[in-house]
Amino acid sequence: MFDIWLLFLMAFAGGLIALISFITILGRKIAEPKDELQKKVQGLEEEVERLKNNRD
């Protein structure tokens, strides 16, 4: 009887770890484009400032 509970506990722990890993990976995939977009916006803002300075 103890063996069954031990197997169940190990399976449950493995499933929990897999779920946490999946959520973490999904969160990174969602945040990754946001970071890339922020870098592009920063680059465009710097270019606008440079163009304004060249115009004067």
Score class of each variant (00 low, 15 high):
M1Y: 06
M1R: 12
F2G: 06
F2T: 03
D3F: 09
D3E: 15
D3W: 12
D3A: 14
I4K: 12
W5L: 13
L6C: 03
L6N: 04
L6I: 12
L7N: 09
F8G: 09
L9S: 15
L9P: 04
L9D: 10
M10I: 11
M10C: 03
M10Q: 08
A11E: 15
A11Q: 05
F12G: 13
F12M: 10
F12S: 12
F12Q: 06
A13N: 06
A13F: 09
A13G: 05
A13C: 04
A13V: 14
A13E: 04
G14M: 11
G14I: 06
G14E: 10
G14S: 15
G14V: 12
G15A: 09
L16I: 10
L16H: 02
L16N: 05
L16G: 12
I17P: 00
I17F: 14
I17D: 03
A18T: 10
A18C: 11
A18V: 07
I20T: 11
I20W: 12
S21E: 07
S21A: 10
F22I: 09
F22G: 09
I23S: 08
I23C: 01
T24R: 03
T24K: 01
I25W: 07
I25G: 03
L26R: 13
L26W: 14
G27T: 15
G27Q: 09
G27P: 00
G27Y: 04
R28K: 11
R28E: 15
K29N: 01
K29C: 02
K29L: 14
A31T: 05
A31I: 12
E32W: 05
E32K: 01
E32S: 04
P33C: 05
P33H: 07
K34F: 07
K34Y: 03
D35Q: 15
E36P: 00
E36G: 05
E36I: 11
E36N: 12
L37C: 00
L37A: 09
L37N: 02
L37I: 08
Q38M: 10
Q38G: 05
Q38V: 04
Q38D: 15
K39Y: 00
K39N: 09
K39W: 00
K40N: 10
K40L: 15
K40P: 05
K40S: 10
K40G: 02
V41S: 01
V41Q: 00
Q42S: 11
Q42G: 03
Q42D: 15
Q42V: 13
Q42H: 10
G43T: 08
G43F: 01
G43M: 08
L44T: 08
E45L: 06
E45S: 08
E45K: 13
E46S: 05
E46G: 07
E46I: 12
E47T: 03
E47M: 06
E47V: 05
E47G: 01
V48E: 04
V48A: 05
V48M: 11
V48K: 01
E49G: 02
E49C: 06
R50Y: 03
R50L: 08
R50I: 03
L51S: 06
L51C: 02
L51Q: 09
K52C: 03
N53F: 14
N53A: 15
N54R: 06
N54Q: 14
N54S: 13
N54C: 05
R55C: 04
R55D: 11
R55L: 15
R55N: 04
